[in-house]
Each structure stands twice: as structure tokens, then as C-alpha cells.
Design a protein around this nucleic acid. Sequence first.
DNA 1: GATCATAGTCGTCTGCCTGACGATAATCAG
DNA 2: CTGATTATCGTCAGGCAGACGACTATGATC
Lengths: 253, 253
Amino acid sequence: MPYDPSAFPAFAVTVDLVVLTVRRHSLCALAVRRGEPPFKGRWALPGGFVRSDEDLAAAAARELAEETGLLAHDPTLPVPPNAAHLEQLATYGDPNRDPRMRVVSVAHLALAPDLPAPRPGGDAHSVRWAPVESLLEQDGTFGRDSDLAAPLAFDHARILADGVERARSKIEYSSLATAFCPQEFTVGELRRVYEAVWGVALDPRNFHRKVTGTPGFLVPTGGTTTRQGGRPAQLFRAGGATLLNPPMLRPEV
Amino acid sequence: MPYDPSAFPAFAVTVDLVVLTVRRHSLCALAVRRGEPPFKGRWALPGGFVRSDEDLAAAAARELAEETGLLAHDPTLPVPPNAAHLEQLATYGDPNRDPRMRVVSVAHLALAPDLPAPRPGGDAHSVRWAPVESLLEQDGTFGRDSDLAAPLAFDHARILADGVERARSKIEYSSLATAFCPQEFTVGELRRVYEAVWGVALDPRNFHRKVTGTPGFLVPTGGTTTRQGGRPAQLFRAGGATLLNPPMLRPEV
DNA sequence: GATCATAGTCGTCTGCCTGACGATAATCAG
DNA sequence: CTGATTATCGTCAGGCAGACGACTATGATC
């Protein structure tokens, strides 16, 4: 049944990605440097157009793989070694968000373990991990590293802030924090993920009691490691539970 | 700066609304009967095209007002008498979700008090409140009321299910349940909202202790009412608090 | 008017979970 | 061997939720 295309306004639809990881005890996001106007030379979130026969989730997974080599994790399959959690975040469609044309962007949130390759897909200067605080700093009062001082392109600061807030609240009541960890990890490494994402210090003893006492959260693998120094720690894998009940409690302030 | 429109695929962008209310102790959603193909005669969620100069939230608010006369509630302003809570839900963009063309729909969730007019905007047979269970029933095994037995048009059953799930989880940790109540309400009326949305029975004594003991959740107005029968109950208005800490606990199973 | 049904409100008690924190264990660096 | 570091186990007190008893204030019914 043919339809009159002029009967409705035409939009461009893109996906933008908030890709988060924990590196060196701080929460970092993937940023790409724009090579073309508008906002040429500024940092932005990775993203691109949705193809005409492509689902939104597929477009997000494709962009994620192109930028990082990570696979989106299908919950029905066993977790592949380089899998990331991927979920839809929100959609941004202010008429003036892109000066070129009317663009609606479906933002997605990806959570990934720290990648061995610091420079994943493209060339050196166009992709980087940056601490989210520095990406969200609006004032240009930076010393060195001044190329990061400019705010993100488009409305990407808002999108990044929404993604960070989603991650912060979601690790409270789900086992999603394990998405930041490698396949095998220790309780201490998981605790440092919470500490980095929330920006707080947690009591190691209470944290240990909480996570090991929640059924289905962690499965011991039998191995131990001393890669953090100190006494060897048990290794765990993520258990089947996705919802934590009762939740992890984020300390006040 | 002119851009080549053929450089990217053109999409139609719509907003669809999951409008929920509590009527006669059950959770109901607004449904409209489609007057045109595809899915002519079937029930669907209200919605429509986003205009070329219109923000997504504005389009959702416009559709809500057209269908119900409700105003979207701007959190920075005092609550007008006929205000509804409105928030973005999720975006659905499967390439085959609309047989006519490529449509991306940004679904929104609205929570409204029970409306005095059961037939808000249009004519009698095209708009109705229906219990969400009956709208989500997939099998056609209905007795009477068989026009409701057919599944919702497009992917609207999925969208409705997502909206209901959002509402169910959000009243746990926010004061959003008051959006289902009139401006002044009793603790019992608020409890019946929770019971209808969650589909469970709650202990009136523990519920009363919980909501009256949470600072900022309820503000007594001084008045009382006996509209529910029995002993007169205090009237309250929603307080300023939006996040409940600790949350309301949804009983297991 | 007495009685009953209904709904609201106040208390009590017990068990679980959390936060604070002491103590011990197992490694590595010097 | 000593100290630094990290992991792990225990203890204790306070807070909150679930279960439930008791009382209150209305309208309905006889």
C-alpha cells in the first residue's frame, strides 16, 4: 500500500552510545573526536545513522562493535569473552539539537570491562577513554589536557549524564556491576567497581558479607588470585541472578 | 549548510502513549480504536506523528491533551488540577513494526487520576479505558466483550507491557503513586492505588505507618472525608519528596 | 437507639538486615 | 623477620518490615 511521504515529516534517526568502563579506579566513557563540522575537533559520543532495514538495538550493537570490538551480550546465550552489556537509554529529539537537520537520536548504554587495548578501533587521536567527570566539566578551566576542556558536541553531555545516572542507579538493584568486571573477578575488584561508579568508599567487610550472601549473585570458580596484592582472594563468576533483593545500598551523600 | 537528504534513510517518527489510571480497583489503560488500515477496527495506544518543529515531550503532551484533556505536569510549577505525570518510556523501531513504512515510535508513559469523564476526547466507540490485563490477553478466548479480545495493533502490547512494568517498579521507590490520586486523597485511597497497580493486598496498618512515617511523602490538609465509608479519614496532598528512601516493598509473588 | 459492618489509626513484638568495627589470615616487599 | 596490604570472619546495636491485636469513628440495619 503506497503512502504519501509528504504526509509526515522526515527525520534522520541515529544511535549514540554511552560506553562506560572502570579504569584505574575511575569511571570512564568512550569519546570520539569529530572530524567534520558541526563541532569539528570537539569530542562526542560514538554513534551513527540507523540503516533503513536495521533494528535500533542492532544499530547500537553494530556501532559498539565498530568502535570497540565488543559484542553486545544477548542474555539468552552464554557470555562470550568480550561481551558488553547493552541497553536502550533514552531518545533525544529536540528540533535544534543538530544544526544540519532534524535528527532523533536513540541513545544506548553499554557497560564493558576494562579493555586491554586502550585505543580500540580507529586511529590514535580520534578515540579515547576519558573520566566522566572531565567530560562533564562545562567550564574550560583546565590546565594541561585542554583539548578535553570543551564541552561535548551536540547534547552529548546531557546524554552522558543520563547514562551515568542510569548506571549508578542500576547497579543498586541489579547484578549489572559484574558487566564492568572480567569473566573471573574477586570480591575486592567488584567492590572497586561500585566505589568507582558511585564515587564513594565502601566497607570491605560489609560489602563482602553482602555480595557473598546474596544467592545467585556470585558463583565461586575455585581459583584464587593475588593480582591485587595482599592475601589471595577467591575468584568468582557472575551468577544467574539479575535482580538483587534486597538491593545494594548506596551510602548517603 | 545544505545536506543531501539521500545521505541517510528517512524515518517517520511518532509518539505513542501508555496512559494509565486506576478505576474501580483495577489498573486501566487508554485505548483507541483504529479507524483506518492497517489494523482497522483493532484497539491501539493513542499516538501520532511528531511535527517537524516539535520536541518529543511536546508531541507527547499534545497527544495527551488531545485524547484526554490532561495537561502534562511540569515539575517546576504547582500541580494544576487536571495534571498528569508524563515521562518518556522507550523507543521502538523494528523495521517491520509498521507495514506501511519505516516508523520509529517514542513511547511515553502518562499516569493520571481517575477521570470524571469516562469518554474524554473523541466519540463513544473510539476511546475507552480498559483493564490492562484484558488488553494484554493474547488468546482470543473471550466471552462477551469480544471486541477487546484481539491483541493490540502493531507492537502496542509490548509497549503497554513495558509501560505497566515501569509504573509498577517506579511506585516502589518514588512518590509517583500520588499521580493516580486526586489532589486530596486519603491513605486508604493511596493504598488501593498500590494494590491495583501491583495486584496484591497490602496490610492497611503497616502501609499507614510507612507512608505517614516517610518525611515529605504526604502533607495533611486538615480535612477529613468519609467517601469510602467507615471512620472518617484524614486528607493529604502529595508532599515535595519524589524519591522514597527506604522504598515501598512490593510483596513477593 | 442498639447493633453491626466498614474503614481508619495506634501499638507491640519479632526477625532480618545494615553499619560500625574488632580480629584473624595469607600473601609480598624490604 | 617485620610491616604493609588485602581478604575474610565475627560481633553487636539500631532500624525497619511483617504479623497482628486493639481501639475509634462513621453509616447501615433492625
